[in-house]
Design a binder for these strands. Structure first.
Length: 657
RNA sequence: GCUGCUGUAGCUCAGUGGUAGAGCACUCCCUUGGUAAGGGAGAGGUCCAGGGUUCGAGUCCCUGCAGCAGCACCA
């Protein structure tokens, strides 16, 4: 006698166990047509699922965002059927729904290519049009294994074998074709609709492990209707348009070449961007009571052995062997380019006796690090082998961890706001499998960080097993202008390294104590963050960041002396300005500098030269504003002030008044 | 690192085994103009590198390097 409670609070009684299909039909023909699946007590199941106990039921229709997951999962099955129909002998493995779409991994000797897509998509559309019902069956484990093995589907058989004992082996049929699947599915293949598109092929390791064979994966995107699909494809174009590698070339910011793979040649404009950001960070850190240091690039192997990096990351370190070829191995110097700054910072901390009165000691370095990243990981300036971190280590007592965490989060939030990011989320990454330090130490470190978050009022989601090898960490994830997430900031609690490197301070009790180390960064690496900034702004930077802030364009040769005077005035006001007095029409100049993403163009002709004015045109706008030269210089100089200096100016004024 | 794709002028890209191409950018000349391309001329090549097949290779084959996408990795 199941009593079913609906979202509006109404309750329906049924005399016997009943399927979702029947419940929907009892409510009305409209819902019966629209319902794709349902949630029973919060669990998403097929409409064919039989409800035999009192429960709360919510029907999922196409309108519901949840339907996207169903559509994407179902279309993955449709893809698999199409592929097996077209390419006999291809083994199926898994095919989940993912963000924006789905994929299916196939085992086949011959990899797929995008040229196969039209045929596969055509077959998929046939399968959707046929609208075969999805039907669920539960098979005995042995039978299922035997069935798939007999078909040569050894990957499926392996999946079933590894399913936990007691887990039902559910099989979904869609017409002639069937697949092992946990479900749930919609009513039939027709519910998928036509708003899907195959996107790309790629290799992917079986079960995500690089020791396993590589499968061939087909990615697709799928949506509820053509409008959503169109919007998604547009979003991809938008991301390509913002690609920092493309903008870096177009704006002449940097380049990379074969002789220095993974390192960046910063051109003048790119370097200006870099230094503006670095100067800003230096001021912010100083305002937050950090001291800045500089430590060596090349450090003897013994320090990395002591820190544990040699053991954990040797393969990814650049090593320099120095000494004659004939010299005995143990006489040679073995130096490593530092992959991190922390062991060096500990050396400074250890240099001389430290008092508890010096804590918390916040030691910052724009630390240039080198890591031998795998070739496939390199990506523009975002993932490189030579980079500079906005790194700092806070040496403190256990009691100070919470306050330091709160302080850091406030500082980080300010920086992100200043740089144009309105929101970020925090993830808590706890102990990884491969780690240094005993479990008791990890218990303490994790507890301290949890408590610090509580006191700082920082909410987070858990990211299990993703901590650093020496400690748990908070990860700060930005969302950019087109909705992509970037992990940038980090705060790591470390009880291990001070111990391994024997750092200590003298406490109030005159005894030696171990400091706790907080590793923290806000930007992460300048290289990567600048890549993110370029994409965030699509190269159209706010004035304070723009590598060229103003171009003064003359209309006629007669106005050239005045144009140069305007340039000079702006330069003296601290702006980065260029004159464009070339023999070109003003249309061409405006077009060129607009394409170069210069935020402000000042146009000067005879009229402006006579009246000592400038015609200001903003990037992206067609309007012009006629301003007195003095007024324009003052306004632009003020606007070009970095946000932290603007605040200082305001506070200063507030103090005086 | 793995799988697949790609590599031709500064950039974007054509190129059928038979003399290396276009547009933009660049240089020069004409033009002095009012807010997203004025006109003309010129210059510019290790066709990623090495090997092979061929009378002949940018083109076909092999190896390497680099880039791109995804996977794996990211202290």
């Amino acid at each position: 006698m199941p009593a079913i409670t609906l979202p509006d609070g109404s309750v329906r009684q049924f005399a016997a166990p009943v399927t979702g299909t029947a419940v929907a039909a009892s409510i009305g023909p409209g819902l019966a047509r629209a319902a794709l699946a349902m949630e029973v007590d919060g669990r998403l199941v097929d409409l064919g699922h039989e409800i035999d106990a009192d429960s709360r039921v919510v029907f999922v229709t196409r309108r519901d965002p949840q339907s996207l997951g169903l559509i994407r999962h179902d279309v993955a099955h449709v893809l698999a059927e199409a592929v097996q129909g077209l390419y006999p002998g291809t083994q199926v493995t898994i095919g989940p729904a993912i963000e924006n779409g789905f994929y299916y991994d196939f085992a086949r000797n011959e990899p797929f290519t995008p040229e196969d897509f039209p045929a596969i998509e055509a077959r998929m559309r046939e399968i959707v049009a046929r609208n075969a019902s999805f039907t669920r069956e539960v098979w005995p484990r042995d039978e299922a294994i035997a069935f798939f093995e007999a078909r040569g589907e050894r990957f499926k058989a392996e999946l079933i074998r590894d399913l936990p004992e007691g887990e039902p082996i559910s099989i979904y049929r869609q017409g002639e074709w069937l697949d092992l699947c946990r479900g749930p599915h919609m009513r039939g293949t027709g519910d998928v609709g036509n708003a899907f598109k195959l996107m790309k092929v790629a290799g992917a390791y079986w079960r995500g492990d690089h020791r396993n064979p590589m499968l061939t994966r087909i990615y697709g995107t799928a949506w509820r209707d053509a409008g959503e699909l169109e919007a998604h494809l547009h979003q991809i174009e938008e991301a390509e348009r913002r690609d920092h590698r493309r903008i870096g070339r177009e704006m002449d910011l940097f380049h990379i070449q074969e002789e220095a793979v993974g390192s960046i040649f910063w051109h003048p404009k790119g370097w200006r961007l870099y230094t503006v950001l670095q100067d800003y960070m230096r001021r912010i850190q100083s305002a937050h009571d950090y001291v800045e240091v500089r430590t060596p690039q090349l450090v003897d192997r013994s320090l990395w052995e002591a820190s544990g990096h040699w053991e954990n990351y040797r393969e990814h370190m650049f090593i320099a062997e120095v000494g004659d070829a004939g010299e005995a191995e143990d006489r040679k110097l073995s130096l490593a380019l530092k992959p991190m700054n922390c062991p060096c910072h500990v050396q400074i901390f250890k240099h001389g006796l430290r008092s508890y009165r010096e804590l918390p000691l916040r030691m910052a370095e724009f630390g240039a690090c080198h890591r031998y990243e795998p070739s496939g990981a390199l990506h523009g300036i975002m993932r490189v082998r030579a980079f500079t971190q906005d790194d700092a280590h806070i040496f403190c007592t256990e009691d100070q961890v919470a306050a330091e965490t709160a302080r850091f989060v406030a500082m980080l939030a300010q920086v992100y706001r200043d740089l144009g990011f309105d929101s970020f989320v925090v993830k808590f990454a706890d102990r990884p499998d491969n780690r240094a330090g005993d479990d008791a130490t990890w218990d303490r470190a994790e507890a301290a960080l949890v408590e610090a978050c509580r006191l700082a009022g920082v909410g987070y989601e858990l990211n299990p097993g993703e901590g650093a090898f020496y400690g748990p960490k908070l990860e700060f994830v930005l969302r950019d202008a087109i909705g992509r997430d970037w992990q940038c900031g980090t705060l790591q609690v470390d009880y291990v390294l001070p111990d391994r490197l024997d750092a200590s301070f003298i406490g109030e009790d005159s005894a030696r104590h171990r400091p706790v180390m907080l590793h923290r960064a806000i930007l992460g690496s300048f290289e990567r963050f600048l890549g993110i900034l370029i994409e965030q702004y699509a190269g159209r930077f706010p004035l304070w960041l723009a590598p060229v802030q103003v171009v003064v364009a003359s209309i006629v040769t007669d106005a050239e002396p005045y144009a140069l005077e305007v340039v000079d005035r702006l330069k003296r006001a601290g702006l980065v300005v260029q004159a464009d007095t070339r023999n070109e029409k003003i249309n061409a100049k405006v077009r060129e500098h607009s394409l170069a993403r210069v935020p402000v163009i000042l146009v000067v002709g005879r009229k402006e030269a006579e009246a000592r004015t400038v015609a200001m045109r903003r990037l992206g706008g067609a309007a012009q504003e006629l301003l007195d030269l003095d007024e324009a210089v003052r306004a632009l100089a003020d606007e070009a002030l970095p946000p932290d200096l603007k605040r200082v100016g305001r506070d200063h004024v507030a103090e005086l008044t």
